[in-house]
Simulated assay, not measured.
Amino acid sequence: MHDAHHPLGRWLSDQRRAFRAGTMSGKRVDELEELGMIWDTADAAFAENLAAARTYYAEAGTLAAPRHATALDKPVGQWLTNLRRPGGLGKDPERAQRRAEQLAAIDPDWNPGHSGWTVDWQRHYTGLRVLLKDGGTLDEILPGVTYRGDDIGRWLARQDRDWARLNSEQQRRLGEVGVKPAVRPQKASTRANAKAGAAKGSDAFQRGIQALTQYIQREEKTVVGRQHVEELPDGTSVRLGIFLTNQKSRRDRLSEQQLATLAELGLAWAS
């Protein structure tokens, strides 16, 4: 038993320090682990929240939780929101990679910003899939039809209307469940030109978001010099500073989803 001159908390800190320094014998390590010693308190807290995330996923089918969501009495929604922020997984690269893999093992789409869309979009898309799996049809999912409090019908109508603003992967996923863009009567040439222009714009926005996400994760800031050029893994160069200036100047013409994507990355002007 510890005495007043050597409090237990300080003693535990000493043991953890010795373990990290590699000065503790293997026998001592085994003895302490048998007593339930947790070497890294940060990892212990992460493990507890990860268990809550598994529970939430089992109930909701997604980790795209709203900020107020809870599970196992843990604020899992806010926890996940914090993790998605630049540097949210921790500054140690190996630990951050390990945590990302643990989250992806629960839900590969736990951080949809990497794919170019918002947590809100991912949550509604999951709700659509659940409703269809439960026997619903697209014709029946009208505004007012909800899943876990989200109006899936209204969201679905918006996807039909704003189809050209979605990126190719969003379009592919929606197409898998039978969603198609709304058909509008137009002259053939006008329709073709508009579709080509929208697709080009959507791809450019997606590349810009990918470059911005990469920049923020590396630099841990959202301030970008106007002349800064970001190189993507595929060799594409994105004039990131000019991209952001252009998005800000045409804010009123961005879709709700595009603004939400920028806001989630920490750009206050997009909120």
Rank of each mutant, 00 (worst) to 15 (best):
G127L: 01
L138A: 08
D134L: 12
D107K: 08
Q122G: 06
A104R: 13
D109F: 12
P112H: 07
N111L: 11
A96D: 12
G136E: 11
D134C: 00
I152V: 12
T126W: 04
L142K: 15
G113D: 04
L156D: 01
D150Y: 10
G144L: 06
D150G: 10
A104S: 13
A105Q: 15
W121M: 06
Y147M: 09
W155K: 06
Q102N: 12
T118I: 13
D139P: 00
V130W: 00
R123M: 02
A96V: 10
R148W: 13
R123G: 05
D139C: 10
R154Y: 13
D107S: 10
I152A: 01
E101T: 14
G153Y: 02
D109P: 03
W117A: 04
E101V: 11
V145R: 12
G116C: 05
A96G: 09
G144D: 09
H114V: 12
L132A: 09
D134M: 06
L103C: 05
A105W: 11
A105R: 13
S115P: 00
T146K: 14
V145T: 12
D151Y: 12
G153H: 01
D109G: 05
G113C: 04
V119R: 15
G113M: 07
R148N: 14
S115R: 09
D107Q: 12
V119N: 11
Q102H: 13
L131K: 00
G153S: 03
V145M: 05
L156K: 00
A157E: 13
A104N: 09
Q97R: 14
I152P: 00
A105K: 13
A96P: 10
Q122V: 08
P112T: 10
G135S: 05
R99K: 13
G144S: 01
T126V: 11
D134Q: 13
W110R: 04
P143R: 06
R129F: 00
R154S: 12
P108Q: 12
V145Y: 04
I106R: 07
P143L: 02
L131V: 03
E101D: 14
G127E: 07
W155R: 02
R154K: 07
A100T: 07
R95C: 07
A157P: 00
D139W: 03
G144E: 04
L128R: 02
L138C: 07
L131Q: 00
R123K: 11
R154V: 09
G153A: 11
R123W: 00
V130N: 02
T118C: 13
A104V: 10
L103M: 15
H124T: 06
S115D: 09
T118H: 07
R129P: 02
L138M: 11
Q122S: 14
P112I: 03
R98W: 15
I152F: 00
L103D: 06
G113R: 04
P143I: 10
D109M: 14
Q122W: 05
Q97K: 15
R148T: 05
W117Y: 15
G127T: 00
G153P: 05
A105S: 15
G127S: 06
L131W: 02
A157I: 04
T137N: 08
H124K: 14
R95L: 11
W117D: 01
I141N: 05
E101L: 10
L103Y: 07
L103H: 06
G144Q: 08
N111K: 11
W121R: 08
H124P: 00
G144W: 07
Y147L: 06
L156I: 02
G136R: 04
G116N: 09
G127K: 07
